[in-house]
Computed example of a mutant assay.
Amino acid sequence: MKKVVGFLTIALVALTVASAQPMYEQRLANEPVQANIAVMAGPTGFSSVALSFDEGKINDSVVANLTVYPSPNEVIARLANGELDFACLPTNVAANMYNKGVKVKIAAVVGNGMLSVLCSDGSVSDYTGLLGKSVNIPDVGSTPDQLAKLLLMKAGLEAGKDVVLDYSVASPIQIAQMLIAGKISLAMLPQPFVSMVMAKNPKIKIVADIQELYSKVAGVDNYPMSVFVVTDKFVQAYPLATQSILDAYKASVAWVNANPAEAGQAIEKIGIMKAALATPAIPYCNLVYVSSQEAKPQVQAYFKSLYSFSPASIGGSMPSDDLYL
């Protein structure tokens, strides 16, 4: 009798566990997937802002947790340790991470080039007048720095000799303020600072469109300045949620481009940038959504260009096709 009771007890426990497991899995399945997404404080993050609407609810199955960071460094660390699932990053930063073994994939290009060389005093009228001049560049290793060196190399010129690249002021906003005040003559800046300085000081003119010059030397229309990346881990665990996030991002880009005033307010609300700066710049920021497979030729051309003068700028080698989702 004791053996029978023992057997029945074990059987009952087994049945309870067996029935509880599907219930537990069903409960998990009913909970929305939480996607942790990082964007930069600046134009790199503009196109993502609609992901913050409705407290990040993409649909009944997916919630986007959008966080704004001041620079890529913290984002890189959090992607590497698994705290983040998606991020908007400068394109070469994505290549660097991949080459250093961080398991990420480019899901889409979300921003094309938006750099210009500006002159505050009329001393230069076009890019040919830059020979022998000093141009303020925001920070060594930044995208403006890389593009300046690349274009000089392609033109057979030498940075520091034929054109001096001045890094004495690292912050784009400080360079913009000095340009407005006429304290510096020439600077390369991205949007929204280009729009800002030209609105504040009508004497300031664009003397070189970096996108146009890049197109001439690279043979492609533009360069991919920023990308949306996703971790391999998230893609493998949640393929449907991944697609939902990408669809929502594509819709966000379209909404921002179509509604710059409302987008500017939303951009300020989540801490990316003040609306007064963002709104007038949005039409000139080249915000796009191009899937990684469609954008691959342009991305690879950009990496090849960067690699030709500075392999370290993309992590030492050309990334393989595995980088692209």
Rank of each mutant, 00 (worst) to 15 (best):
A41D: 04
L325G: 06
C119N: 13
A170L: 10
L189P: 10
L8N: 14
S313L: 05
L84F: 01
L150F: 08
L115W: 00
P283L: 01
A108I: 04
M1D: 10
G141A: 09
V229E: 10
S195V: 00
V102I: 14
E25T: 10
N92W: 12
A77H: 14
A301D: 02
T231W: 12
D321R: 03
A181N: 07
M273I: 11
A187D: 01
S305A: 15
N136S: 12
N286K: 14
K105A: 13
Q146I: 12
M114L: 07
R78Q: 15
G271A: 09
A29H: 14
K296Q: 13
S185P: 04
I206R: 14
M188H: 04
V256P: 02
K269V: 02
I204L: 03
L51F: 06
G129Y: 03
N36W: 05
L66K: 02
Q265E: 15
C88P: 00
G132A: 10
I137F: 10
N286M: 12
A77S: 15
A41L: 03
I175C: 04
A263E: 04
T44C: 08
V235H: 02
Q265N: 12
A176P: 01
A155K: 13
G316Y: 07
V256E: 00
P32I: 01
V117M: 06
D121E: 09
V62M: 04
L287G: 02
L118R: 00
C285N: 13
A312I: 08
M188I: 15
Q191A: 10
A218R: 05
L323C: 12
T44S: 09
N96I: 07
G219A: 06
S19K: 12
L323V: 11
S142N: 07
A108N: 02
S125A: 11
P297L: 02
Y167L: 06
G316R: 11
S52N: 14
M153Q: 04
S61K: 15
L66P: 03
D322N: 11
G160A: 05
T143W: 09
F86E: 11
M23D: 00
L8T: 14
S47M: 02
P224D: 08
L147C: 06
Y214D: 01
Y98M: 09
P72E: 09
T16C: 06
V17D: 03
Y324Q: 10
S195L: 05
N59P: 01
G271I: 07
G101K: 08
N222S: 15
